[in-house]
Each structure stands twice: as C-alpha cells, then as structure tokens.
Write a protein that binds this DNA or RNA. Structure first.
Lengths: 242, 242
DNA sequence: GGGTGTATTTCGCCG
DNA sequence: CGGCGAAGTACACCC
C-alpha cells in the first residue's frame, strides 16, 4: 500500500512472455490484468459464448476472474473466488483458463493478441465500513421502538420460526405478538410475502388464542405491495435507515 | 479489436500527468485503469468509507466506475453506468470523482500515489450468447408441455394478472386453469410465495367456480419450499433448462 | 422514471 | 456444504 508497490507491465508482449509473467504473478499472489482482442467461453451453471472483441481481464489472487467490456458495471463473464487459474500458449494465442468444482465450472479466454499485461502486488488491510444498511435500521428501531408504534416492546431479534428468522419480534401495548420485517429501501410484493410467511408460521406455532400482528417497516411500499398488505391484514410503518 | 488497439500506459507518473492522461482518455471514449494506494468514500443510496490500501480502479466510457481489491468477485465500491467521471490534483494527490443524480450519488477515490495508469481504446461489437436460462426452460416447456404434465396445454406466456405476469398460463387435461412458475435452479420459499400470489390473484379475477392449479417447475426445491407448497395446495414438477 | 422479476446474481451468516 | 435472506444488488423489460 506504499509507493514501493511492485508493478510489472508489458506492451504487446509475445504470448510466451505473457504466459511467464502471469504464471509468476499467480505464484506470488499478485493480481493480473490483461487487455486485448479475445473470445470467451463459459460452461457451468449455465453456458455462454462471446465472439471476438477487446476486453479487460482481471485474475485475482483469491481465484476470482473478471472479464469486462467497455459497458456495464457487471463483468460480461466471470468466475467466483476459489478457482484455479492457468495460462498456456496454443497456436500462437494466449489461453487463460479458470476452473472450479462444486459446481463444475470453466471459463476460457483466448487472446488473439495481448495488447497490455500487468501484475500488481496488492496490500489491502482495510475493511469497508458501510452505513445505511438494514442492520442500521434495526438498531434505530431497537433504540426507539416507539418509531414503530407507541408502546411497542422488542423482545428478540432474529427470532426463529418454522418459516425462518424474524427481524424484530416483540409485543404491542396490548400484549399482542408483533412481527417486524425491516427493509432499508422501498419494497415490493416479495417483502410482503416474506412477512406473511413469518406471521402465518407464528400463528401456527403459538397457541391458537394468540393474536399475531405483522408490521413491515420500510421507507415506502409499491401500490401492489400495499394492496397485498391489506389483503393479508398486515401493516406498514414508514421509516428509513439513519 | 485488432492488434492496432491503442494502449497508453504510465508507471508511477506524477499526479498532473495522470490527470491529463485520464482527461484525454475520457474525452475520446477510452477505458481507464488506475492502480495504487488510495482511500475511497461513497455517499448516495447508502454511505461507505474505505481506509488506505492498494486497489485497482476502472473508469468505463459509459460512465461506470469500479474499485476492486485483491479479493472477491464484486467491486468494493462502484458507480453505475451513466455517471460523470472527473479527475483533479489536490495537495499532490490524484482525486477521481464519479457522480450522478436520481439518485444523488458520489464516489471519491483519492490516490496517495498512482503506481500504474492505462488508457485502452475498446472496440467490442459482439453480444454475449447465454444458454441455460429461464427463457430456455420456458421454450422447453412450450415445445413439450407434457414434461409438465400429460395433457397440459399452454395458452399464453407472460399472461398478466393483478399480481404480475405469469410465466406460462394454460389448462390441464380436465380444462382447469394452470399457472406455471419457472425457475432455472433449485428454489426456496420465495418462489412458492410468488406462485401463490399469481394463483390467488387469478382465483379472485376469474369466476368463483373456476379451479386454478399452481405448478412450480424447477430442478428441485428446498424442504421449506416443499412444505410451503403443501400448505398452499401447490404442485411441483422437476425439470431443468436444456 | 417506477414497478416487477431474473441472475452463472454475489455475499455473509448459520446450522 | 446447503439453506436462507440482504444488497448502494445490476439488468432487462414493460408501463
């Protein structure tokens, strides 16, 4: 992370020269990038084929692989962390392969030419600190339960039910059981379904005479979600992460 | 996409030299990559802070920005396509900013040092061809409806209901309405909820005497999903994409 | 631009 | 390892 970070680069190198650079880089745990005209084949959970074009390829020391075009935030092809990267020269082309098992997946990138190759020694001790998440919204609710409803008392978080864990479990001023489902942003029908599953599971699980209320806490809901809430007899409280 | 792809690179350049390279590259629609020790601040839909460390930064001509560490398939920070990239020198550091509106979002990367900078002219005329998707599974069902059930007749795809569009809508050998929800891979409780919403919506919408069956078509289901299917009186057929 | 659903989602947590 | 749900999810499609 200091100015002595080792960087090795090549411009329009011969295939065997790139191969050696990449092999050495992988061996020492460096990050590799390649750029140039290539084709990409993938087979695994699905299958894909990408004809010739210029792409930017990243091989990470944790085994992840990324193929980026000039468009989009997402890579056009990729491989998750934990893969084995290998590189070879075949018919004058550089072939990069990244494979894994469980599930069996393989990515193969064939460079007609490598326009640029680089190896970076990376040191990154820092963790990303994010705020505005659902966890922050939960803290806000636990710190001030009245934001949900006057008299609401949280009793547990992540309380287990046969349908999964409830975000916040508690009771209202009248002693009725309350299930709170938190969402950090505007929600659609899926979140209502989720809350409903928890409420139904608790109604089954608790004694038949126990009343169970379900409250969706989010900044806002879509029309369809609001209608679903009404149909299911569930409630909504508008609240956002701090 | 040929060997004459223009690539411009710099090793440990002075900040103002990188700034000029980046500005020229952005102006001509090239892709930019930077590597070196930096900090990253984000504020928008959420907010995040990342302390000093080595990262690889990509600025795409469509306005996307990516910040990658040595780990993970996902960027540690990013900006979606459509953002405005700008670069400046402040206190001897290179500051890269990427911003957009609706929603208001800003990403700021401050390089203590730039170890490597590159600009790539990208030409990529090809589209990715993927197989094994839900669309392929749908075709398989439409080509051979008996795979769902002997006597099943598809009548429409993407049929609209008050709860959203049904994947495949049809009728069984007895003339009963059938709603088919397709999933390309093993499914959990959420898919059952989705199917149930469609079935319930159609039961409301059609005449009260119309029987509506719901069939989940996927390679497999989890235990909880299977239980939910039973509770809701829905069915499951095992089928995978070709 | 918002709503809805898919994705080779990825990722983290937990049993 | 699989199940489950969150994510600044991204992305496509339709209104």
């Amino acid at each position: 992370m200091t100015a002595d970070s080792a960087v090795e680069t090549l411009s329009y190198p011969a295939p065997d020269v790139v191969r050696d650079l990449v092999e050495r880089a992988i061996a020492r745990g460096a990050m590799v990038t390649l750029f140039g005209p290539c084709t990409v084949e993938y087979e695994g959970r699905a299958a894909s084929s990408l004809g010739p074009g210029d792409r930017h390829v990243t091989l990470k020391p944790d085994g992840a692989a990324l193929v980026h075009t000039d468009e989009g935030q997402q890579p056009v092809n990729w491989q998750p962390p934990g893969c084995d990267h290998s590189v070879a020269v075949a018919d004058g082309a550089l072939v990069v392969r990244s494979e894994r098992t469980t599930p069996e997946e393989e990515l193969e990138i064939t460079f007609e030419t490598v326009a640029h190759a680089a190896a970076f020694d990376v040191s990154d001790p820092e963790e990303l600190a994010v705020t505005g998440t659902e966890a922050d919204l939960k803290e806000r609710v636990l710190d001030a339960p009245d934001l949900v409803e006057s008299g609401f008392t949280p009793l547990a978080t992540e309380r287990e039910t046969p349908a999964g864990a409830v975000d916040v479990y508690g009771e209202d001023a009248a002693g009725r059981t309350v299930v709170v489902e938190l969402k950090r942003r505007r929600v659609g029908p899926d979140a209502v379904g989720q809350l409903d599953r928890y409420v139904e599971a608790l109604r089954r699980d608790l004694h038949a005479d126990t009343e169970v209320r379900g409250i969706l806490v989010a900044p806002s809901v879509t029309d369809r979600a609001r209608q679903l809430l009404a149909e299911k007899g569930l409630e909504f409280v508008s609240l956002e992460p701090p």
